[in-house]
Design a protein around this nucleic acid. Structure first.
Lengths: 337, 337
DNA sequence: CTGAAAGCGCTTACAG
DNA sequence: CTGAAAGCGCTTACAG
């Protein structure tokens, strides 16, 4: 029977195998301290009965759920439209592929706060947590640190004093790279469409960008705060080109925003990169499908996620909270700037 | 304490509230058959202790997990790049937002089979299942029907005799719409880049397309089997334009494929829609961000998913398996064809 | 290596 | 409306 409702229990297996429940339990879990004969008998009984352990019963005693949560405090529309987020989730899935852990993706329901997320996590449904795309106001560091579960952030947490483990790319360096590249290409009337300033990645990229411009003695033509979406990138791109037609170089906070700017540029009759140089961020697949292809700064979501997941797995194995890992980005030059 | 490790139990709550564990349990679950006084006392104790019920213990007796699975037998790269899949998952999330159920997304790990999925589902981790993007070879209908869990497919199942509940769009009608539209626009040298033919949606679209062409007495110039991805759409689009430059109308099996064809057309110096008319499928956001925007057939993923989820929820509430729901698509005309 | 027994933290008839 | 008791299906010292 595959029927979940009338499940066979360990008791049944033990009876059929002619051993005690304790021995059956040991055998089912791999055979530590079990004689070859008993092991084989149990194996046969499991096979014959189609036995599958009841995870609730097991969790109740082991206090382990074999489940790891990926928390993305964004609504599904964002989660499923941002290639960086997609890469990162894929990276977690990959890191978990050879473990018995299942990935559970937790995001915000449309228009809802995080108030469904936290009770779920507090409820003890998961053994560990990887967080990405966190914002200042969600106070996720504090809320999650208080759970005392193995935890890792992708992207610098906003409250460093909590010493939450994390992996990140050096976004200040990334912002610098964008500025230096546009300056080296001869652009002097520079503008940026940033990410949402309640996110550390957005803030850091702006910081590096501003520092590099200041050092070069160049003043920004304009700066707009975007939200890492294509639609907003297009809106702000259009506004930028209307209000500051003299602009000759744009740093878009991510590839999605850059793709929006590209649309706006086409609509405004601007030629990229001839009269407008454009640099994106994240170096995603998206940048290969635009025309022209996007010059972009690397932000290896898959790799970051793999490392963050390993951090969680290591803590689960009893290791102490690891120090942060910071990856240095590089600029990948393509046609847009 | 928020600490998950040293959790307070119902026992503690009962003691502090001065009632029995049974009464505490009733009070915690909403107060049926509990006096106002006891209810209030328990409420206060819960508050004071920060009590959160242990889901494993609860599941063990109720045999409910308050979890609903969305099964997408594709690897993460596909799941996170196809806007139709994204919409559908969002629709499930939306339908669940006002229930106590959590959504668990189960996909295939890269390069793996479904052999991690099934044991998980069999293990009794979830109360119900919504499936989408199924293929012939995964035999998911049979495997999942054998679980006897509330179930619904988005998209016609491949084995109708199992009578699995499902919602679908009339893809045969959709294929017809594409053909009729291109013919009405005057295109006569028609080709299609289909979806993978192990998927019912792909097969049905081709069926409708072929029927309409046959009725009009028009013979296809070429047909290629794609896989619903942009990259493959671009490859096959390039091949089509090279091998059959006379083609003047293309039906791409989804918007992702159509976007790929658009790239190929640009690379080949073809002007859409002037010398090449193009119709996509799914009517996704993507079609609004291409240039020109895509004419497309509607495939309301969000709505389909909401309905499928409701089917599962209804079965969970004891209702019998519902009959299929079939939605009729329409063609949305934009600039591409 | 094995088994009897206790216990994980809940819910749910049942008797009152 | 309330509480004592049984039981959900496992794991894990413990004694042998």
């Amino acid at each position: 029977m595959d029927d979940v409702r009338s499940r066979t229990t360990l008791e049944d297996v033990a009876r059929v195998a002619g051993v005690s429940r304790a021995t059956a339990s040991r055998a089912v879990r791999g055979g530590e301290l079990v004689s070859p004969v008993a092991l084989e008998a149990v194996r046969r009984a499991v096979e014959q009965l189609g036995y599958v352990p009841n995870p609730a019963a097991r969790s109740l005693v082991t206090r382990q759920t074999d489940t790891l949560a990926v928390v993305v405090p964004e609504d599904d529309a964002r989660v499923f439209s941002d290639p960086f987020i997609a890469q990162a989730i894929g990276g977690v899935a990959e890191a978990l592929a050879h473990t018995p852990k299942q990935l559970v993706l937790l995001m915000r329901a449309r228009g809802q706060e995080n108030d469904r997320l936290l009770p779920y996590l507090r409820g003890g449904h998961v053994d560990g947590i990887v967080v990405l795309s966190h914002h200042r106001d969600d106070h996720l560091e504090r809320e999650l640190a208080a759970l005392h579960l193995p935890l890792a952030f992708i992207g610098r947490p906003l409250e460093p004093q909590l010493a939450v483990p994390y992996v990140d790319v050096d976004n200040v360096a990334g912002g610098r790279l964008a500025a230096e590249h546009l300056l080296a290409a001869g652009a002097r009337r520079l503008a940026t469409i940033s990410g949402p300033l309640d996110m550390p990645a957005a803030v850091d990229r702006i910081t590096g960008w501003s520092e590099a411009l200041a050092e070069a003695g160049v003043t920004e033509v304009a700066r707009y705060e975007g939200d890492f979406t294509l639609v907003r990138g297009e809106e702000l791109g259009a506004r930028l080109l209307a209000e500051h037609p003299e602009v000759d170089g744009v740093f878009a906070a991510n590839d999605l925003t850059a793709a929006g700017v590209l649309h706006a540029a086409r609509a405004a009759g601007r030629s990229v990169p001839r009269t407008l140089r454009l640099v994106g961020y994240d170096d995603t697949q998206l940048g290969l499908t635009t025309h022209p292809q996007l010059t972009s700064i690397t932000n290896p979501g898959r790799d970051l996620a793999r490392r963050a997941t390993r951090m969680v797995l290591d803590q689960l194995a009893g290791q102490p909270a690891p120090p942060p890992i910071i990856i240095t980005p590089v600029l990948v030059e393509r046609a847009s700037g």
